[in-house]
Structures are given as C-alpha cells and as structure tokens.
Amino acid sequence: MNIIHTKNLTKTYIRFEKEEGLRGSIKSLFKREKIVKTAVNNFNLEINEGEFVGLIGPNGAGKTTLMKMLTGIISPSSGTISVLGYVPNELKNAYKKQFSIVMGQKSQLFQDLSAADTFLLLKEIYDIPEDEYRKNLKYFIDLFSIADYLNVQVRTLSLGERMKMELVAALLHNPRILFLDEPTIGLDAVAQKQIRGFLKEVNREKGTTILLTSHYMDDIKSLCKRCIVVNNGCKIYDGNLEMLFDRYQTHKMITVTFDEATSYIHDFNVQIIERNPFKLSFMAYRKDVRHIINCIMTECEIKDISIEEEDIGNVVERIYSDKGGALIEEIF
C-alpha cells in the first residue's frame, strides 16, 4: 500500500541580504536584497508501507527540508503531499499519532530527568493505553538492553545510550512511519552497528515504514533496499541500492606485488595509484579487470594479487556529481 505520496513538491526560501555595519542595518530597514533559494524542487515520491528507504545527498541537498515537509513541520511552497491520507501541514493530531521523527541533533528527552520520566509524559501525550505502554516498553527494553540506565539522568548518558532512548521514545506509540534524520551522527562504530540492528528489527517485526537520512553510507548500505539520491533539491536516483552501486561502482582496485624488481608497462586504460619496482596498484574499469589480470599473470612473475571494491567515498562523490534527472529509474 502506498502511504507516502508527493507530487511536484517544491519548497523555496526567501532570504534577505544585509550590508554589514550600522549603515547596512539602517539601509535594510527600507530596502533589502531578496534571494530565492529552492531547497526542494519538483519532487515526486511514492513510498509503500513497510519499506525501509534511505535518503542520501550532500549537505544542503534538501533531505531534511523534504523530511520536515513530510512531517508537517514546514509547509510546502507548492505541490501536494499526502501521508497516510493526511495533509501533513494541517497538523491533525490523528496524523501526528501515527508517525515519529528522530533528529540526531535535537533531543526530545528532558536532560535533567531520567528517560523513564519522559516516557511517562509521552504516554499521556500520545494517549497510549496502559497495557500497550507496558508491553511496548518491555519489548524495547529487552531489544535495546537498556534496563540498567532507564532511571538515570539523561544528561549523564553516553551519546549512544541517549540515542537508544530517543528511539524508544519515538517508538513507544507504535508509529506506522518513522522518520530518522541522521540518527547515527557522532556515534562510534559499535553504537552505530547496534542502532542499525534495532532499526532492522523494528522494521521487520513491527512493519514500521522507515525513512532514513544519513551521511554514513554504511547505514544506508546495511539497512535500505531502496535508496533515493537528492542533490540541489532534485531527485537524481530512486531505486534499488545495489543497482545504484552497480552503476556507479565502476572501478576495481587492483594491487600486484612482485618478488623481483619489475618494470611492467602496458597501455591499459587504468589509473595508477602507486608504482615502484615491487608493487603496482591501480584502478581499472570493472569490465577490463579480467583482461588486465590475464595479461599480468601471463607476462610477469607475481608474488601476490588483490582485487578490491572501490572505496565507497569515491562512489558517493560520483553519484552526487551526476547532475540532472537523467538517471532516475523507477523500479517500483
């Protein structure tokens, strides 16, 4: 079932420029330079219930703006949104009870109280029936193994522990959609991995639809089947994550080491990374790899050879620099 649906969604901001100094301040009282910035541009999006969708893009691409429009925090400049049949910016309580948003940089927990205190308040705010509240709380306490610091002042929790609490707070009322904006920001590798595990579990067990933005490609790779790439407010890719990587992970990294000094020269179309008499490492197009290896193996005496996937950073860079909507591929 299609639960998120946007059509030609656009958000523009108007900014004013002011010259510096008192003179500029006074001048700006009368005349201001207007700058129109398009944060989200003609965005069309369909998401089905139960999906786990990753939203990636460089800083300022419009991911967060998109998410804020979907949750009703800000209103769109033009276009339509429908989430679970509601128009988010009408801010109906019935809608708000069915989703949750977790922002990595904004905490909804009271810093000076324990997380359990905040949970009690949320129980009232979301009108969660007593038995459902107990059941859910127990489920998450077991899942996240947080029983030990449930009653500890939030201020004293580590970042990873706090983020687990934020997630529990967001999930207590069984939302149908969970919006996650950079939930793993600043966390260490272990905590990141744990959080990923929980999210996967919640998505599978509870059927919660999850929309995730993250700067960590690992998050997206390990969680999302479907991935949407945004740049300059436009959607530049929407489809299967593996296919995206297939398309953009165009190179392999090959490293060959030799027992004796070798000066192997061949005019392959490769990009040399490192070269000395005992070692040669380079990037080659995937389609050429077989041929290149064959040549080297037959023409040289090698000590060892390794073929690796290209560094994920390069792939991301290549995806983002791909301008325009030419590559949009709807697979759903």
Binding site: T71, A94, K96
Partner: peptide
Amino acid sequence: GELDLYITKPVNSLFH
C-alpha cells in the same frame, strides 16, 4: 528550530 519536536506531537503545540 527546537519547535520541530513540539509540532510533531499530537498535542496542541502552543498548549504544550
């Protein structure tokens, strides 16, 4: 931007 969290709660945000 802290208001975000109030807006997304199913209680009147001004009241909260």
